[in-house]
Amino acid sequence: MNKSSSASALRRLMTEYKQLTEGGSPDDMFTAGPISESDFFTWEALISGPKDTPFEGGIFVAKLTFPSDYPLSPFKMKFEPPILHPNVYADGNVCISILHTPGDDPTHYEAASERWSPVQSVEKVILSVISMLAEPNLESGANIDCCKLYRDNKPEYERRVRAMVREQLGL
């Protein structure tokens, strides 16, 4: 990738970071920022589990990795440690339409309008992920076992999610 595009990516990331720190997130649902001053292309986000879901009370850590041609290409989001959710791969990578470019559609379920476009932002994506935590999309599952569990035995799914939340909090 050429220099000018990574320079504009850096400028864009700094602006987004500034806005996030100034404005804060709605209802303090998440915080996000670069892990270190020296690398603006790797961020960490702390997301609190949405209310009235089994994820409530949990704090989830996700790593955001930005490509050098950001925002033309979307960033990648990975929960570390991985969380149990139908749309999160077992390794923690998040599968959500807003982070897919219109060209690649691994599951062939998504309308182009739901995909990544350069006017999306970290904030919009994370808010989408939070709403995804509350309402999994079973049509394009990433973790098939979890999809089956969610569909066939929701109480058990919720129990396991709560157990995972407690475990990640070290309770």
């Binding site: 864009r12 404005g23 997130s25 919009k124």
Partner: peptide, 25 residues
């Protein structure tokens, strides 16, 4: 489709009002 996204949109300040929204120049 993405309720919480849309609801929470209002209080957030939009990206830079002037300049390019993509590269933030």
């Amino acid at each position: 489709t993405r309720r919480s996204t849309a609801d929470s949109k209002a209080p957030v300040a939009p990206l830079t009002p002037v300049g390019c929204l993509i590269c933030c120049d």
